[in-house]
Amino acid sequence: MNTSLLLQLLVNGVIVGMLYGIVAMCFVLIYKSTQVVNFAQGEFVVLGAWVCLSLVVSLGLPFWLAFIFSLVFMMIFGILVQVILLRPLVGEPVISVIMATIGLSIFMQATMNWIFGNNAVRFPQVFDQATVSIGGLNVETAYLMSLVLSLVVMGLFFWFFQYSRWGLAMRATAWNQQIAQSLGISVGRVFAMAWAISAVVSGIAGVVIGLVSAVSNSLAIIGIKVFPAVIVGGLDSIVGAIIGGLTIGILENLAEFVDGQYLHVGNMYSVAPFYVLLIILMIKPYGLFGTPDIERV
């Protein structure tokens, strides 16, 4: 048994899992507050990364400025998507809403392919030091930043929902729209805000992934990987999304390890999460932390 490889893969799993968790959180946020499943979440991630990258590369902006600009762009984009595309579909059956976001995802994919090209592009050197030494262990700065940013985002989420006025409004809306409305909460604004936050955080995740590896349209697969994560955690639990993301990240890398060392079937990395997804759906359809949907007649 190759322990150092296993350890390396586990660390990878945690870092990737954190990112899955963040994107899953965005996904859950939208689902919880607007009852929309966003199949274009992966494209949101990629869009954020591309915008930041092209600001850095073509306009020559410093990284942090480009990062902030791209987040502002994502915020506006998220609001526009909600207002233009999803507001007319409020009250339509589930399938229409799902298809609308699927249509959006196809459209965004093609548009981004056209504008930004099909190739993977790396960020120019952003950090002065490529690696940082922590307790004798060399860690890539990008990985470290990814971990730190993930934790910061999670902390901000927690603070926002627990203590801020708008967070309370969003929780109220998620719990019961009619009651929230009767208490003077503008549900329309809450919806727009959910999409804005989700787009911004997806953008952050995109930039971080872009820093860790490279920016390419194939990153959108993260939008698909998010499904096993949210199903493990439960579609409407934000904590569940993070735990689910971590689980799937680690599971992927473990599957890779077991496959590479013992099974040699290949491609387990990308398929294992889906087997887990099917099994969980059979045993615990509402995930680990989801609320069961009990219908009374």
């Binding site: 339509e92 196809i106 093609a110 392919n113």
Partner: peptide, 22 residues
């Protein structure tokens, strides 16, 4: 961009039909 326009048109068709002619 012809290849992309083809794919975009499918996505746009889905969205437009859902919004305008569900």
């Amino acid at each position: 961009g012809t290849a992309y326009i083809k794919q975009m048109s499918v996505g746009a068709a889905i969205i437009l039909f859902l919004v305008l002619e569900p």
